[in-house]
Each structure stands twice: as C-alpha cells, then as structure tokens.
C-alpha cells in the first residue's frame, strides 16, 4: 500500500457479534491524503463500529485495515490520528483544561498545544469550568479540541454535530471545513446528508453494514435534471418520452422532470416546440445526494447494528 497517498484502507473489514448480528460486512474503503471523506449511512448502519475498528478499539472478526501504514490502534499510527468517537467522553469532575491536560499526557503532547486547541474551538473562556457543567455543544467542542491536540494528519470525527442546535451545527461544520482545508485528512461520519454534501470531497455510503457506494459527491449526485413547464402537459410528456425514453421522464407537481444532462436544454426546448408543445419554463436542477442515498439504502438485509 502506498502510505503517502492512502491514509486509511480497509479490505473486507467485517465485525460479527455472535451468529446473528453482522455489524460491518466486508467493507473495503480508501481514504486519500488531504481529502474530507464522508462516511454516510442511516443510524445503525455500522459507521461507528467501522470507526472503532480503525482506532483499534474493536477487533475485526475478519478482514484487514491499515491506518497510516500501520495496523489500527498501533501507537505509531495513533500518534498521528486525532479522533472523536460517538459522544465526547471526559472526566466530569475535571475542568475542560484539566481534561485536556490528561489527554495531552497520554498522547505525549506538549502543554502549549492545550491553549492553542482551546482557542481553535472557542472554548478558552470556559476552560477552567468543570466538564460536568458544559452544554452538549461545549462538550462536543472539547471533544474536537482533544482530537486536535496531536495536530493530527488524520482526523476521525464520528457524528460531530450530533445533538447540536442549528447554530452549533453550522459552527461545527465551519470548523471542520477549516480543519480539512489544508493538508489534513478528515474522515467524517454522519447520517445528515446536507452535512456530508456541504463538507466532503468523497463519500462512502454504508447501509446494513455494507459499503454500497464510494465516490465523489458530484459523481454520486449525477449530472442533474431539467424541469420543464409545458402545455398541454400530457402532450408534452408523450413528446418527451418519444424523445428521451419513458424511463427518463417524470411528472412532478404539474411539471416535467427530465433526467438528462442540463446542457441539452436548448435541443430539448426546440424539439418540444417543434412537436407543438408550449414551453413555459425550462430550468436545470442539480441532483441531490438525498435522492441517491434514499435510492441506494432502500434495502433490507439481515439484522444489523451500528
């Protein structure tokens, strides 16, 4: 494996609990250096189990994973990885600052980094308060601060906006975008499509423990579609079906949705007008990840957990 270009690679990674529960099923994914990789899947799809396996917290039943050229959980890979897995977990009786001091000691990171990461997540003013008194948003930010202590090459964030209010979610997305804008690689899991769409370069979609797609956001969204307002609608639909094939034509709320590349708008307009259709509106629309996601994950498998 080329550890320069590929930071995380899994091959048929599988986790089975007993004979009935298959949490992760032969997942093979690749995270490349410098990208923000979105790990997208419904609740219970196996995202967290996958991430725990990448950090060495859970041992796979079978398959292989390599993180920064090492097996998961190896001190030499962990030292270059920062992670927030599920909810942020710290000692409630310690202040935010002291919690970071404990983490820094385990990570063998110099103390001066603590102030830096507190500033980065905007928590300096509450750093001396006990963790138990923090709001969920502040706990989440402390979790990200802890993940950044090592100034890691690879940042693994598991549902970092979980439980945050809309403003908190927007702040967190901004922060993640900033963190992923340089050399740093980010592996981000979420069940929120908009979040992944806004932040990530590439996406892996997991459902029922299986990785069912891995590609760039653009490729997954497809090339989009054309919305056509036309009169009479029936005649317009028939003409469009003759032109493009019935499978690419839908009627939505009194308009036609043509699943074609929007650059063909001019030609389609001309053909429809020539066929005697009055075209009242012609508008390109982008495909959404949500459509792709719902289409892809609309499958029922065996019993799974996340």
């Amino acid at each position: 494996m080329n550890s320069e270009g590929v930071l995380v690679e899994t091959r048929n990674l599988t986790k089975r609990y007993g004979s009935r529960i298959l949490a992760v099923d032969r997942v093979s994914l690749t995270v490349r250096r410098g990208e923000v990789y979105g790990f997208l899947g419904p609740n219970g799809a196996g995202k967290t189990t996958c991430m725990r396996m990448l950090l060495g917290l859970i041992r796979p039943t079978s398959g292989k994973a390599t993180v920064l050229g090492r097996s998961p959980g190896h001190p030499e890979s962990l030292v270059r990885v920062g992670a927030l897995v599920e909810s942020p977990a710290f000692y409630p009786y310690l202040s935010g600052m002291d919690n970071l001091r404990v983490v820094a000691r385990y990570a063998s990171v110099p103390k001066r980094r603590i102030e830096e990461v507190l500033r980065l997540v905007g928590l300096t003013h509450r750093a001396r308060d006990k963790f138990a008194t923090y709001s969920l948003g502040m706990k989440q930010r402390l979790g990200v601060a802890a993940a950044l202590l090592k100034d890691p090459e690879l940042l693994i964030l598991d549902e970092p906006t979980n439980g945050l209010d809309p403003a908190g979610m927007a702040d967190m997305r901004d922060l993640i975008r900033r963190l992923g804008s340089g050399e740093r690689t980010v592996l981000l899991s979420s069940h929120l499509l908009g979040e992944i769409e806004q932040i990530c370069d590439r996406v892996g979609i997991i459902s029922g423990g299986r990785l069912i797609a891995e590609s760039t956001v653009e490729k997954l969204r497809g090339k989009g579609a054309l919305l056509v307002g036309a009169k009479p609608l029936d005649h317009a639909r028939q003409s469009a079906e003759q032109l493009l094939g019935a499978e690419r034509v839908e009627v939505l709320n009194g308009t036609l949705r043509l699943n074609v590349d929007p650059v063909t708008a001019g030609r389609i307009n001309r053909e429809l007008v020539d066929a005697g259709v009055e075209v009242t509106e012609l508008r390109p629309v982008e495909g959404t990840l949500e459509e792709v996601f719902l289409e892809m994950t609309d499958q029922k498998g065996e019993s799974h957990v996340g």
């Binding site: 725990r52 917290l57 897995v85 977990a89 000692y91 385990y106």
Partner: peptide
C-alpha cells in the same frame, strides 16, 4: 462509566 477508556486508549498508549 464515564466512557473515558475509549478517549484515552485512542491517544497513544497500548
């Protein structure tokens, strides 16, 4: 009970 074992084990130490 605090869930801190995972936080500490992913820092560095075996």
């Amino acid at each position: 009970s605090f869930g801190t074992l995972k936080t500490m084990l992913i820092q560095r130490p075996r």
